[in-house]
């Protein structure tokens, strides 16, 4: 009984063969040629996967790499940057990859990536994770495993991508910071391909989905601790900066800051948005049961011993209005 080479390769987590040419490898695709921080992070994830598989990282950028920071892409982990003209359709991209037989194709989870990824996997007979937060390589079988967020990212499901190429449409915001390794070397080339021109679009107003207290992902709740109209104005400013709606507790209703439809708590609406920022709310039972379903609760108020403190995920103890103004500024970046 002994090891053969492939077993050993698998155990070592890599291949002994030197990667050659443009076949195999991990391909990161920027359909519109843009290489921003999100793309650099995606290249970094491609680098990690390629190292585990033992292959090159290629960046394929459309629109002749317009706005492409090729140096940055190489420092972030790309071995080779290839550009092409225009923006690819699913079929054009599939034609490009058909001979090259990539092990993995990584697309950012934006409009273009979401439109191209599923069709690409289907056309090439590969496998797909339409919403990946992370990628890993299983050390025994060398299979690519995508981590798909479920239940509002309360956990991630491992999706084992069985067929090559493994196409992953990745949520770049969830990826770690991009590498910046000046010692890395890479080359830049042109595929000489001319893809389709992106179609022109007749822009119209987006049919509005009414945002209500029940449907808004972010809710700023104004409470007693804001003390005056200037304090409430800070709450409104913060809601505006976060793209959420402003609501209030019973005091806010009594002060006339909000109407009854914006009252949060058992006596008003029970809400479960992704984020609640409670300003100057000390947290009575009615209020806390009204926001019990919230994904994350931030409380800013003056009393370190208030009932809301152990209940909130994050607390800022101090003047809520002052915090609201500072946070609005910080959120606007």
């Amino acid at each position: 009984m002994g090891f053969d080479l492939s077993d050993l390769q698998a155990l070592m987590g890599g291949s002994f063969e030197e990667p050659t040419g443009e076949s195999g490898g991990v391909w990161v695709v920027s359909p519109d040629g843009l290489i921003d921080d999100a793309m650099l992070r995606l290249i970094g994830k491609g680098r990690v996967v390629a190292d585990a598989l033992g292959g090159y990282v290629y960046l394929l950028a459309g629109c002749n790499g317009a706005g492409a920071d090729t140096e940055g892409a190489i420092r972030a982990g790309a071995d080779k940057v290839l550009t092409a003209g225009g923006m690819p359709t699913v079929n054009e991209l599939a034609d490009f990859f058909r001979e090259r037989q990539p092990q993995a194709v990584l697309l950012p989870r934006n409009r273009l990536g979401k439109a191209l990824g599923p069709g690409l996997a289907q056309t090439l007979g590969g496998s797909l994770c339409p919403y990946a937060a992370d990628l890993a390589v299983d050390p025994i079988y060398q299979r690519i495993v995508a981590h798909q967020p479920i239940l509002d990212d309360a956990a991630r499901m491992q999706v084992i991508l069985l067929a090559a190429p493994a196409v992953a449409v990745m949520e770049t915001a969830l990826l770690p910071a991009a590498f910046n390794e000046p010692w890395r070397q890479g080359e830049v080339g042109d595929t000489q391909l001319m893809w389709s021109e992106p179609p022109s679009h007749e822009m119209v107003d987006r049919p509005a989905r009414p945002i209500t207290l029940k449907t808004s992902p972010v809710v700023v709740v104004a409470g007693q601790g804001l003390t005056d109209d200037a304090g409430f104005a800070a709450a409104m400013e913060l809601a505006d900066a976060l793209g959420g709606v402003v609501a209030g507790d019973v005091t806010a209703l009594d002060m006339g800051w909000i109407g009854e439809e914006s009252l949060v708590g058992l006596t008003g609406e029970t809400i479960g948005p992704e984020l609640v920022i409670a300003l100057g709310v000390d947290g009575d039972t009615s209020f806390m049961m009204g926001v019990a379903e919230a994904g994350c609760l931030v409380a800013a108020q003056a009393d370190a011993g208030a009932p809301i403190v152990p209940f909130a995920d994050y607390n800022v103890v101090g003047d809520p209005a002052e915090f609201a103004r500072a946070f609005a500024k910080a959120a606007r970046g």
Partner: peptide, 8 residues
């Protein structure tokens, strides 16, 4: 039930 479980 809901209130009794939440009210401390």
């Amino acid at each position: 039930c809901k209130y009794a479980a939440g009210r401390q």
